[in-house]
Structures are given as structure tokens and as C-alpha cells.
């Protein structure tokens, strides 16, 4: 057996992997979009003056953050149907599971961003008679999000790298596909290596882009 089989790589492995790339990318985008919205809702819920909102929100965040995402994925995929009688398609359960998990991370990011907005900005917004909703939309969130965009970007990359977890609930994403190629051909080297390369090729440029974004978003730049 040769060490690296080019023919196998290009004729079998690559085409099969290319067919499922969209699953990995789609799950990443879907889960991240979910987390961007969910994280904001959790962050606002946690800040609420009403204890019956802020306490359960806090409890939820802590619970989700401190349990493994794989357990949560299993829960949504295997236990939900028993509890509620609805079986979610694997990809939906996967996006939901990762989305919820990353919502709790992003809620912390939003929180840090919101806390970085100086008190004077809130006061100026009140003095100009913005309604609470307008205050958040026009004044607070734009300033809160700007400095944390790079951190959010990093979470996007981490999330992307965690999508292989979805293989565990039978989502046909990259790593799961590579593994099944391996188990049917008894060759793991090429498929697994290609998957690794693919993640590298996506993550590295993304992290460079985040660096550039960081510079562009700096408000103190004159």
C-alpha cells in the first residue's frame, strides 16, 4: 500500500467531500445566525430589571455553558422526540443544538460589549428623549457590538471547527463523510487529511479577515 494514493484522493475522496461541504458551511452559518440572535436575547434577558426574567435567563446560560455541546445535541436529537413527540431532522437538531450552545457564549460577548458603553451615552440618549427601544437600536447596540465583532468572529471560527460534532447525530457533514469513506475503503489517510486541510483553508483566511475588521472598526482611529 502506497503512503498517499493520488488517484483515490481525486477520484473518490474529493468529489464525495465536495458534495457535503455545503452541509458543514450551512450548519455553521445557520447555527451562528441563530446564536447571534439568541445571544442578544439572552444578554438582554439577563440585564432585565424583572427578576423573573433575569434569573431564569442567568440559570439557562450557566447550565448550557457548563454542559458539553454533544450532550445537548443528543438531547435535542434523541430525547426531544420522546418528550414532545416531534423528531427533528438531524441537520435542524444540529443547527438548533450548536446555535443554543453558542448563544450562551455570545450572550457573554454582548454583555461585555454593552458594559463597555459609557454611562454618559445612556444619559445623552435619555436627555434626547429616545424611547427605550430606539436607545438600544441607535445608541447602545451599535457601540456595544463594534468592539466585540472580532471576538464574535473568533466564535464563528470555533463553531465552524466544532461542526464535526454533528456527525454524532448522523448529519452527513465533512468528517462523518470522511469517516464513512474510510470505513468502506479501509483508507483513512486521504479523507481525514483532506478534511483537516479544508478546515485550515477556511479558518485561516477567516481569522486574517477578522484581524483587518478589528482595525477598521476602531472608533478612536482618526
Amino acid at each position: 500500500m502506497s503512503v498517499w494514493d493520488w488517484e483515490f484522493t481525486f477520484a473518490d475522496v474529493l468529489p464525495q467531500l465536495l458534495q457535503v461541504i455545503h452541509v458543514t458551511i450551512g450548519a455553521t452559518i445557520g447555527a451562528f445566525a441563530f446564536a447571534l440572535v439568541g445571544g442578544l436575547i439572552l444578554a438582554l434577558g439577563r440585564r432585565s430589571q424583572k427578576k423573573w426574567i433575569s434569573w431564569p435567563t442567568y440559570g439557562f446560560i450557566e447550565f448550557v455553558r457548563t454542559t458539553p455541546p454533544l450532550v445537548q445535541l443528543y438531547f435535542i436529537f434523541f430525547v426531544f422526540p420522546d418528550l414532545f413527540g416531534v423528531a427533528l431532522p438531524a441537520i435542524v437538531a444540529g443547527i438548533l443544538g450548536l446555535g443554543i450552545h453558542y448563544s450562551t457564549y455570545l450572550s457573554e460577548v454582548y454583555r461585555a460589549g454593552i458594559e463597555s458603553v459609557p454611562q454618559g451615552q445612556w444619559e445623552a440618549a435619555t436627555a434626547l428623549n429616545f424611547s427605550p427601544v430606539q436607545k438600544w437600536k441607535s445608541i447602545i447596540l451599535p457601540q456595544a457590538i463594534r468592539p466585540v465583532v472580532p471576538v464574535m468572529g473568533n466564535y464563528l471560527i470555533v463553531l465552524f471547527k466544532e461542526t464535526p460534532l454533528l456527525a454524532a447525530i448522523s448529519v452527513g457533514e465533512l468528517l462523518g463523510t470522511a469517516q464513512s469513506i474510510g470505513s468502506s475503503t479501509f483508507r483513512y489517510l486521504e479523507p481525514i487529511t483532506l478534511v483537516g486541510l479544508f478546515f485550515l483553508l477556511m479558518s485561516y483566511p477567516a481569522s486574517l479577515m477578522i484581524k483587518r475588521l478589528e482595525l477598521r472598526l476602531d472608533l478612536n482611529r482618526k
Partner: peptide
């Protein structure tokens, strides 16, 4: 509150 306006010691302009 619409009848009241205020100028602050530290201006508090919106930097964005």
C-alpha cells in the same frame, strides 16, 4: 421629558 434638554460636562456625543 420632551420639554427638557441637557448639555453635559463630558459632552457625551455619539462616537459612532
Amino acid at each position: 421629558r420632551g420639554d427638557i434638554g441637557m448639555v453635559f460636562q463630558h459632552f457625551n456625543l455619539f462616537p459612532h
